[in-house]
Amino acid sequence: MKKKSLMQSMAAAPHIVWCVIFIIVPLLFVAYYAFTDKEGHFTLANLSVLTSPLYMSTLGRSVIYAVIATAVCLIIAYPLAYFLSRMKVRYQQLFVMLIMLPMWTNFLIRTYTLTQILEKNGIINSLLGKLGIGPIQFLGTGAAVVFGMVYNYLPYMVLPIYSVLVKLDHRLVEAATDLGCNGFQTLTRVVLPLSVSGIISGVTMVFVPSISTFYISQAMSKRTITLFGDVIEAQFKVNNNYQVGAMLSAILMILVLLSMWVMNKFGDKDGEVIA
């Protein structure tokens, strides 16, 4: 018995080492820099960013963009995932593959390519030009930033919702229609409540990278819109101010943790109503 538990802990060892080196240690670094000054002395001075209107308005803007991008993703992804889950199995596999395909390319490259396509002299505008329309300036707007986020993160919304819906017992849908539900009522009373877990993980997986993203906003807005991730990046790479950068990162992390906690509470509460 003891031998087996030794074996088990040995099997887990690489994972624990990995976690310590690549998760715990970096977090400790963040905490260290956030609460020290340039000489390495303990200080709370970096907390002053919390009162800076510039940083806080950027953070607010990031939240708004992330919420909008998440909502758009959800609206597009849910019907898509639903139809996907109702397809014949071999088509399902094909389409899941197609949805995952862009994830094989780095998001920086994908976003850069997207800007090239949407540029004033890009493919779309040259096509529109042939029709006598445009050129239209797509880039440089808030909508372009949201579009970039949706484009990059949509698969993270589709896949968890799809995986819940594909397991949904179709007889429950039949039972709902049998008991008097029309199509819309079946959706709101049976399908949606039973796919809450997929929606929550999809929302989390889109919201978290959206709120912390740093390149999409720069590229898609032509540097006219700055989000919180860009500010953090600038602190590390341009200003060489690790201390403020770390504090901003910590603030963002706490915000993300808080929002995930709220989301899970929401899910749990729903679960309690269910039970």
Binding site: D169, R171, L172, E174, A175, A176, T177, D178, L179, G180, C181, N182, V190, P193, L194, I274, A275
Partner: peptide, 22 residues
């Protein structure tokens, strides 16, 4: 006529009760 407009109800094989409802 779709099921929800028929005066017929069904007891399904293995019940198909709604797991999210009591």
């Amino acid at each position: 006529l779709p099921p929800h407009r028929r005066q017929v109800n069904t007891v399904f094989q293995r019940y198909a009760l709604f797991p999210h409802l009591n």
